[in-house]
């Protein structure tokens, strides 16, 4: 199999880009490069990550300005070509603002910035980013967000459920999806979703910050490793 080439986009105000670069390079041993937000060609890449942070200072709405970055046009073609895209935290917000994912992310219901470890239950393993996991797997991952409450209109939520676009939900440690586990107040406990084609995934918790027991947990690698498994599967 040819070496998988991945890219992590750095926007002005991204702060999770180096975490993602390090996770892919050191923990997954994947070829990765930093992609500048002004770049206009992503065709040589096999997978792209939009990292967390506060791109453009979250001005107006999280991701609202970022959406017009030069790199977003080639990213759209990249996504439409069916290649894997992962938006983490601010990356998730950007993908929603760019309409590459449905819905939006609102202020946490507590009005507080959430910075702690959380647990999510995998609902959809058939995406390039979750293919190494099984439905029902529980992962322990950190969150760091002020606007993490996923919102979508009720009738469109039904579409998400029907199309299997809900990738993960907040749950208790034993995997129960409850209101108590839904600390930011997301619709239907949603922590991660994908587009209809399932190649574009947005996730609020940070898998790239949980890649080694030394930093508190390694469940993030279990998730990110999906991209390797997926590449292996499509190469055979």
């Amino acid at each position: 199999m040819a070496q998988l080439r991945t890219g992590v986009i750095s926007f002005p105000g991204s702060n999770g880009d180096h975490d993602a670069l390090s996770a892919l390079e050191h923990d997954l041993s994947v070829e990765v490069r930093r992609v500048d937000y002004r770049e206009t060609d992503l065709t040589e890449l096999d997978a792209v990550v939009l990292p967390g942070g506060f791109s453009y200072g979250d001005a107006l709405r999280c991701g609202a300005i970022t959406r017009f970055s030069p790199v977003m046009e080639p990213l759209r073609s990249f996504a439409e070509a069916g290649k894997p895209v992962l938006g983490i935290c601010n990356g998730f917000q950007i993908l929603c603002e760019a309409h590459l994912l449905p819905g939006a992310l609102l202020r946490n219901r507590t009005l507080k910035f959430h910075c702690f470890w959380t647990t999510i239950r995998i609902e959809q393993p058939a995406t390039p980013w979750t293919s190494s996991l099984a439905a029902g797997d529980v992962l322990r991952l950190p969150v760091a967000h002020g606007e993490g409450a996923y919102y979508i209109e009720e009738h469109r939520l039904a579409d998400l459920e029907r199309n299997g676009q809900i990738v993960a939900r907040y749950c208790t440690d034993d995997g129960t999806v409850s209101d108590e586990a839904n600390r930011n107040g997301s619709v239907a406990n949603i922590a991660a979703i994908c587009n209809e084609q399932r190649n574009v995934v947005g996730i609020m918790p940070h898998p790239e910050r949980a890649t080694n027991e030394l930093i508190g947990g390694s469940d993030g690698s279990r998730l990110l490793r999906g991209i390797l498994q997926d590449a292996l599967a499509s190469a055979t």
């Binding site: 609102l106 202020r107 946490n108 219901r109 507590t110 009005l111 409450a149 919102y151 009720e154 107040g185």
Partner: peptide, 9 residues
Amino acid sequence: GVNDPQGDA
């Protein structure tokens, strides 16, 4: 129908 926690506060 959209939650407005700021409004609630």
